[in-house]
């Protein structure tokens, strides 16, 4: 053992996270195959489009939480933050009558601002992330109701807004291909997030913080700054989700969003990201989000009772994490 020679590289972290992602992917394929056989009308292309569209919001929120979880934290505010940013875009576009790009940028920027406030609470005030973001979850929910006057805000004065998410712009390029923009936006966010996590210095710091914050600090890393940025990015991605959901409903619904954070965290966990931090992938989260919506869709198409669908989703979470534990033991 001491006498280690120059052998082939055996980076076990890469192997195990790759394995976990592969496991999640295999589970996804098995689910697709299962429902294709046993659920009539499931395998149609139009249904695949439905599933992808239904995944978009949870997938994007999952990406937001993935950042924070890898950094060693947790973000419970993503659901209501999504709603708050949707309300903000409504205020900008409908109440202030500003042009569409301002609304989009404003929602994302506001999400980033609110997220970085969570980051300040965690980094500077040393409040545990669970508590800080639990507080932010309520703050965002309350502000969404206050800003909207507890009424939905409609985007009728900005007719293009309602097209952002559900429209299939790809059809202009490839006639005949119907795929809502929200699906491309989700994959776009995921790819961008993947690049940031794996290639950028921010990503490297996020992994370092999640693995061993104190060692990073003693290496001269300005831990607080990177933490605040991490939560800020989570907030910005929530802004994207806010745009997706409000565009699809052509209205900002201020009461929506509670409970979405748990679905997002479930997607992250199923995708093999460790809640302990320091380990995880964005693509795993997207696969996790797909597993959840395939399950929901497939069981519905099969006519399984809603109640049982919830039970099965819970089982899948536990099984996925168990596989993760088994894989980690082996490495």
């Amino acid at each position: 053992m001491t006498d280690t020679t120059q052998e082939a590289p055996t980076n076990k972290v890469i192997t195990s996270s790759f394995l976990q992602k592969a496991v999640a992917f295999v589970v996804l394929i098995i689910l697709l195959a299962f429902f294709s056989i046993f659920a009539p009308n499931f395998a149609a292309w139009s249904n695949m489009v439905n599933i992808m569209q239904a995944t978009a919001v949870n997938g994007v929120l999952g990406v937001a939480v993935t950042f924070v979880i890898i950094s060693g934290g947790i973000d419970l505010s993503v659901g209501t933050m999504m709603t708050l940013t949707a309300v903000i875009s409504g205020l900008i576009l409908t109440n202030l009558g500003m042009p569409l790009p301002v609304g989009i940028a404003g929602a994302i920027a506001f999400g980033g601002f609110m997220g970085s406030l969570s980051g300040v609470a965690v980094a500077k005030l040393k409040i545990p992330p669970f508590i800080a973001t639990l507080g932010m979850m309520q703050i965002a929910r309350g502000l969404a109701l206050v800003f909207s006057g507890a009424k939905p805000i409609y985007f009728n004065s900005t007719p293009n807004y309602g097209l952002l998410s559900p429209e299939s712009s790809i059809s202009l390029l490839i006639p005949g291909l119907e795929m809502p923009n929200s699906v491309f936006i989700m994959f776009g966010v995921a790819i961008l997030a993947s690049i940031v996590l794996n290639r950028s210095i921010l990503g490297r710091y996020i992994f370092a913080l999640g693995s061993n914050e104190e060692a990073a600090r003693l290496s001269g890393v300005v831990v607080d700054k990177w933490k605040i940025i991490t939560y800020g990015i989570s907030g910005m991605i929530c802004g994207v989700a806010g745009l997706l959901v409000s565009s699809r409903l052509n209205s900002a619904q201020p009461a929506l969003g509670l409970g979405y954070e748990l679905d997002a965290i479930a997607a992250v966990v199923i995708g093999g990201t460790s809640l302990a931090g320091g380990r995880g992938t964005v693509m795993g989260t997207i696969i996790g989000a797909f597993i959840m919506s395939v399950l929901t869709n497939g069981l519905r198409v099969m006519g399984v009772q809603e109640e049982w669908k919830i039970v099965v989703t819970g089982l899948i979470i536990i099984v996925a994490v168990y596989i993760d534990i088994v894989l980690r033991k082996q490495s």
């Binding site: 009308n41 249904n47 919001v57 409903l249 009461a255 929506l256 519905r300 198409v301």
Partner: peptide, 24 residues
């Protein structure tokens, strides 16, 4: 042919599209 439950607009939209899928 089906009775489903959905507690918000977004979930209802996806649920209804699934019902349409299952029952052409």
């Amino acid at each position: 042919v089906d009775v489903q439950y959905a507690n918000d607009a977004l979930k209802a939209a996806d649920t209804i599209k699934t019902i349409m899928q299952a029952h052409p």
